[in-house]
Design a protein around this nucleic acid. Structure first.
Length: 601
DNA sequence: CGCAGGCCTG
DNA sequence: CAGGCCTGCG
């Protein structure tokens, strides 16, 4: 247990730019990678294989298939912490910086090349074909077929929109293709990352041992070759992967946007009317009769709007309201808010899906990954160490809720979106979006602002800790890019939580005294207590979280403190509460590891 | 002085 | 919940 990292100092200013920040270290790779090569001929898979192959061929010479086998058990016995911040920091430096000396080819290198090439072949083959891709497992193929099947059914007579124009249908098909392309991109990316992470784990543990042995004999110049090459390869692969995928995704989204723009009579790219709350109508010069498309769009916009669970009425000026659609609340109570989801068997028009993609951004989770090894599905609490793991975790969450409908569902999760509400049709923001996506693909969920979900999570954390250190907060909000402002906002939240908590305590303590309670022992806090209800209502409004017993104990202790103090008329001292605070702040307990998951809520 | 935390207010 | 102000501490 015990996550609380060595709390260096409670009062240390929290400048979130600690060196260990993985996201920040990884970023340079992404930035550099986005535009430094022309994207001319853009065949979905081909660019990936091209770039990857280029790199790999540059670095490696021969190969050996031994590592092609993917162990089904997780990095067997590996310490999940082994590749932590240090590793990332170090890796970043090596990113894309190959040196000749690194080319000394070990068996592992060769094997890795073999694996990667295998993966590449899968990627190249996948997007538009029907799954000869070796790397795709049967489940994925099945599901895709199913999707198509549902798709077909959907188009059958029923309430079909009379195929008014062939152009529209073909555009739909185009959209659909693009969409599928995007989906498979994501799937493949995930698989790739997964595989690379396995290689990573394996090699890291090996090289780590060797590193340790070496370091005992001080810095020895010789013998570095293969280890470093391994690391470099690893990182190169990561970076290349990131880059190629992001480029591909860019392209897909460019295409998507073009498609949508072509559909709309209004070529004006910025500030697309459909998504603006204030100007739902197109200016006068627009056709008086709204086209079918427009109707569909308007309707879908309504749909998405109403489905959003967080039409928050609270004052949350600093809490970014992003379209957080997935309220993937975990245990222990049944989900009352289902995550947003597209059912392919539901009568949803393609354009709705596309629109949603554009409105809420590209990083929607397209259903679970049936191909993931069981070990990954376990999803360790340290998922931040493997950024992509959290994707798997979210998928897991989704699939849990979606139950049998899992197959053929596209569950859109906006959790990792940046806080900007996106304007559809704006190509520039489109580009930004895909770069955001690039970011989130590799260090998912890193975002600048705090969202209502973060607030909710913070409130639940309050059940465990009333006085969290900024370090703890950083650890438990790994999806937040910390800076001074964010930190103080979080601190402020907890300060507000405490305020409410203590006010309640004082209130109920005084009430007890008024009610003639004479003994502290007669003052208690149970789940039936009004006091508890008030607190629960505040921190756990949805009542979907099982409040830990310890919180009840702490609450009772607090109440006792207030009761005693007031009984003894200590409240005449202006700072009489401070003594109580002193007691209570020692009663914090560890926050469960689960809370560390970026996708906890 | 800067920071953390509390109090008050809107 | 957030902002502004105050206090205590190093």
């Amino acid at each position: 247990m015990n996550l609380s990292p060595p709390e260096h100092s409670m009062h240390k200013p929290s400048d979130g730019c600690v060196d260990g920040s993985k996201a920040e270290h990884l970023l340079p790779c992404y930035r550099r990678s986005r535009y430094d090569e022309p994207l001319a001929s853009y065949h979905s898979g081909s660019i990936i294989s091209h770039l990857l192959r280029k790199t790999i061929h540059n670095k490696l010479t021969s190969l050996d298939n031994s590592l092609l086998y993917l162990p089904s058990s997780n990095a067997s016995g590996l310490d999940p912490e082994s590749n932590s911040a240090d590793d990332f920091a170090q890796d970043d430096q090596s990113c894309l910086s190959f040196k000749d000396e690194d080319l000394s080819v070990s068996e592992h290198l060769q094997a890795k090349r073999a694996r990667v090439e295998n993966i590449i072949r899968g990627m190249a083959a996948s997007p538009n074909t029907d799954g000869e891709a070796e790397s795709e497992c049967e489940a994925v193929r099945c599901r895709r077929d199913l999707l198509k099947e549902n798709k077909r059914k959907q188009r059958l007579p029923q309430h079909q929109e009379p195929t008014q124009s062939n152009t529209k249908t073909s555009k739909d098909e185009e959209c659909h293709k693009l969409k599928e392309q995007l989906q498979s991109m994501q799937r493949l990316l995930h698989q790739l990352q997964e595989k690379i992470s396995h290689v990573h784990d394996q090699n890291y543990s090996e090289s780590e041992e060797r590193e340790d042995a070496r370091s005992e004999h001080s810095m020895e110049p010789g013998g570095f070759g293969s280890d470093r090459a391994m690391k470099n390869l690893k990182e190169t692969l990561k970076c290349e992967l990131t880059r190629t995928v992001s480029e591909s995704v860019d392209m897909v989204f460019k295409k998507l946007s073009m498609t949508l723009l072509n559909q709309s009579p209004q070529p004006q790219p910025s500030h697309s009317p459909e998504y603006s709350e204030t100007e739902k109508r197109i200016p006068d010069d627009s056709p008086s009769e709204p086209s079918d498309d427009e109707i569909v769009k308007a309707r879908s916009a309504e749909h998405f709007e109403s489905i959003s669970p967080e039409h928050q009425t609270e004052a949350l000026s600093l809490v970014v309201r992003k379209p957080s659609l997935s309220q993937a609340v975990k245990r222990p109570f049944p989900l009352h808010q289902t995550p947003f989801q597209f059912g392919y068997n539901a009568p949803l028009h393609d354009s709705q899906i596309l629109e949603h993609l554009l409105k809420y951004g590209p990083h929607s989770t397209f259903s679970a990954m049936p191909c993931l090894p069981a070990s990954l599905e376990r999803s360790s609490p340290d998922s931040m160490e493997h950024p992509w793991e959290s994707v798997a975790m979210r998928s897991k969450l989704s699939s849990g809720h979606l139950g049998q409908h899992q197959t053929g569902l596209v569950s859109v999760d906006a959790l990792c979106l940046p806080h900007v509400k996106m304007e559809c049709g704006d190509l520039q923001s489109m580009a930004e979006r895909s770069s955001f996506m690039t970011l989130s693909l590799n260090s998912p969920h890193i975002q600048e602002g705090l969202t209502p979900n973060h607030l909710k999570k913070a409130k639940l954390m309050f059940f465990y800790t009333r006085y969290p250190s900024s370090n703890l907060l950083k650890n438990f909000f790994p999806d937040v890019k910390f800076n001074r402002c964010i930190t103080s906002q979080l601190i402020k939240w907890f300060s507000n939580f405490r305020e409410f908590y203590y006010i309640q305590m004082e209130k109920f303590a005084r009430q007890a005294i008024i009610d003639g309670v004479n003994d502290v022992k007669d003052v208690s806090v149970t789940r039936e207590s009004e006091l508890f209800r008030a607190l629960n209502m505040h921190y756990n409004k949805a009542n979907d979280f099982q409040v830990p017993d310890r919180f009840l104990e702490v609450a009772e202790i607090t109440l006792h403190e207030f009761y005693s103090a007031i009984s003894l008329s200590k409240d005449s001292d202006p700072s009489w509460k401070k003594a109580i605070y002193k007691v209570i702040c020692k009663l914090d307990s560890d926050v469960p590891e689960d809370f560390k998951s970026p996708s906890y809520l």
